[in-house]
Simulated scan of single mutants.
Amino acid sequence: MGGKIYVVGIGPGHPSQRTFAAIDAIAKSEVVVGYETYIKLVEDLLGGKEVVSAKMRQEVYRAEVSIAKALEGKTVALVSDGDPQVFGMAPLLFEMLAKRGISVDVEVVPGVTAALAAGARLGSPLGSDFVVLNLSPLLTPEDVILHRALKAAEGDFVIALYNPIDSGLLRRVLEVVKAVRGPSTPVGVVKNAYREGEAVKITTLGEVDVDEVDMRTILIVGNSETFVWGSYMITPRGYSRKYRL
């Protein structure tokens, strides 16, 4: 009998943000595979299961182990934080299966993304069209990242910035956006959303403290209509253009 791989989005970290489907998929699995930090976030669900915990940058290894276990006939939960499609394990797993011509049953279980979690803590900054941009240069060349940042700024999209692991690149991206949007554009900075050590701050493009940012931080840059009201960052959807509010 063939095995199965659940690619599970566990959300931002806190158990309250897990979906019922994610909990059920892990419960059905004999093997749970994931980055060591993600494994710790679901350790309350791991009783009696085979657990394969991997280090940072061992994504290919995680996918290979999941495939191998499934081909042995086992049910596997390959866990990602947030949603597994959004800079998570799903794209890599499917690419490896396709390139190797391996047929195995795969089900993607969606989760609450980092952008959605950070947006919820800020109010409603994602109320209009938005872009998620990964700032890690490990897999995407810097010039491509800067080009995409420029086009997102010119398109007046709200921009959620993921994985700001390179402070120099983050500064260049913010400068590119600031040249289009202006220094007074609101920016939400959320560290450890729904995890221990959570910190939420609203600032502007001209005042972002890059030294306070790490890879656990999401930055949300507003568009031309985004405004701050009290402790909330708000991007209107456009109702005021049609209705009297």
Rank of each mutant, 00 (worst) to 15 (best):
K4H: 15
I5L: 07
V7Y: 04
V8F: 06
V8G: 09
G9K: 02
Q17C: 13
T19G: 14
F20W: 09
A22N: 01
I23F: 00
S29E: 01
V33C: 06
Y35Q: 04
I39F: 02
L41N: 06
E43Y: 00
D44T: 01
L46R: 04
G47C: 00
G47W: 06
V51S: 00
V52E: 15
S53G: 10
K55W: 13
K55Q: 14
Q58A: 13
Y61I: 02
A63S: 14
A63D: 05
V65G: 08
K69G: 02
K69V: 10
G73M: 13
G82E: 01
P91Y: 09
A98F: 12
R100E: 15
I102V: 14
I102K: 14
D105N: 02
V106W: 12
E107N: 06
G111V: 00
V112N: 01
V112D: 02
V112S: 00
V112A: 06
T113R: 05
T113L: 07
A118H: 03
A118G: 08
A120S: 15
L122W: 01
S124C: 09
P125I: 03
L126R: 07
D129M: 09
V132N: 11
N134M: 13
N134Y: 09
P137H: 06
P137A: 03
P141V: 11
E142S: 11
D143W: 12
I145K: 01
L146T: 02
L146N: 02
L146M: 07
R148S: 08
K151L: 10
K151F: 01
A152W: 00
A153V: 03
D156I: 10
V158N: 12
A160T: 10
Y162C: 08
Y162M: 05
N163C: 11
S167G: 06
R171D: 04
V176C: 08
S184L: 03
T185P: 10
V187R: 05
V190Q: 06
K191S: 14
N192I: 11
Y194N: 09
Y194A: 15
E198P: 06
E198W: 11
V200Y: 11
G206L: 06
M215W: 08
M215F: 09
T217P: 06
L219R: 14
I220E: 05
G222L: 08
T226F: 15
T226W: 07
T226C: 05
W229N: 13
S231N: 14
M233W: 13
M233H: 03
I234M: 09
